[in-house]
């Protein structure tokens, strides 16, 4: 047996209680393996508990432990940082708690905030600086305008009031709020200085954000706001352009834009 084969068999035995122990092992090795298996589970569950503090509070000890074990089985860590053990936990929660989709949304939010906490430091572009930069823009320049958004900032549609849930989970003994939103909203997650933060804004921010984050232009953003309408009227185009301006203004106000391209 080569070293590579030994290490493969050893790690398989840690990840899977049912995996056979390597050939030639006796009772003393089996007792030692029990410690390594316990260490592995403890490490993954502890890392998840640290990353998903509010999700753990929301689910309670038993529910979170069940989700953590499912995560460890479905997504054994592969990266060199233990923090990465939490990647995809929102998907694990979505499957496990299909009747409570707010759990997966909360887990997604906590993961996004963890990612932002160690993102590169950048300075937000102020509305004044933006105004100065585009002061001489004509239609052509506006159409070709691209934005550099804060690294690892993210946005997605959510169906639940994550703001109310976040605040309630941060206060011991707080009552659980009504979570279902009347209509989906965009959860925008970014960093204020060193502190990850989020807000819920109008639903159309999500498509606009995804468009600009992909490196597209302001024209593309207006197109994304028009949506699937293949033959928009001039009024619809005008409305989309006004929405694009309002959305961009909000991003500048919140400090999500860090530069122009």
């Amino acid at each position: 047996m080569t070293l590579a084969e030994r290490q493969e068999a050893f790690l398989n035995a840690i990840l899977d209680d049912a995996a056979p122990l390597p050939k030639g092992w006796g009772n003393s090795q089996a007792a030692g393996m029990a410690v390594y298996r316990a260490n592995y589970r403890h490490a993954v569950i502890s890392a998840l508990a640290e990353t998903y503090e509010r999700t753990a509070l929301y689910l309670g000890e038993a529910g979170f432990r069940q989700a953590s074990i499912n995560q460890a089985i479905a997504h054994p860590p592969s990266g060199w940082t233990i923090d990465a053990a939490g990647e995809g936990f929102d998907g694990t929660c979505a499957k496990l708690f299909a009747k409570n989709p707010e759990v997966a949304e909360l887990a997604w939010l906590e993961w996004s905030m963890l990612e932002l906490a160690t993102a590169p430091d950048t300075a937000p572009m102020s509305a004044q600086d933006f105004g100065a930069a585009v002061a001489d823009f004509g239609d052509e320049e506006w159409g070709a305008l691209g934005l550099t958004l804060q690294p690892r900032a993210t946005a997605r549609l959510v169906d639940h009031d994550l703001t109310a849930l976040w605040q309630a989970l941060g206060q011991e003994g707080a009552e659980r709020p009504e979570l279902q939103l009347p209509e989906p909203q965009t959860c925008l997650v970014w960093r204020e200085g060193e502190r990850p933060t989020f807000i819920l804004v109008e639903a159309d921010h999500a498509a606009a954000f995804a468009t600009m984050q992909s490196g597209a232009t302001y024209t593309d953003m207006i197109g994304a706001l028009i949506g699937d309408n293949a033959e928009p009227t001039p009024e619809e185009i005008q409305n989309a352009a006004m929405r694009a301006g309002a959305i961009l203004g909000r991003w500048l106000q919140e400090g999500v834009v860090v530069g122009l391209t």
């Binding site: 030994r6 290490q7 790690l11 592995y40 993954v44 054994p76 860590p77 592969s78």
Partner: peptide, 16 residues
């Protein structure tokens, strides 16, 4: 060692 090509144990595993 802590990992093989696919997974990481995040534990300090003993060397043969």
């Amino acid at each position: 060692w802590t990992r093989n090509s696919a997974h990481n144990s995040h534990d300090l595993l003993p060397m043969p």
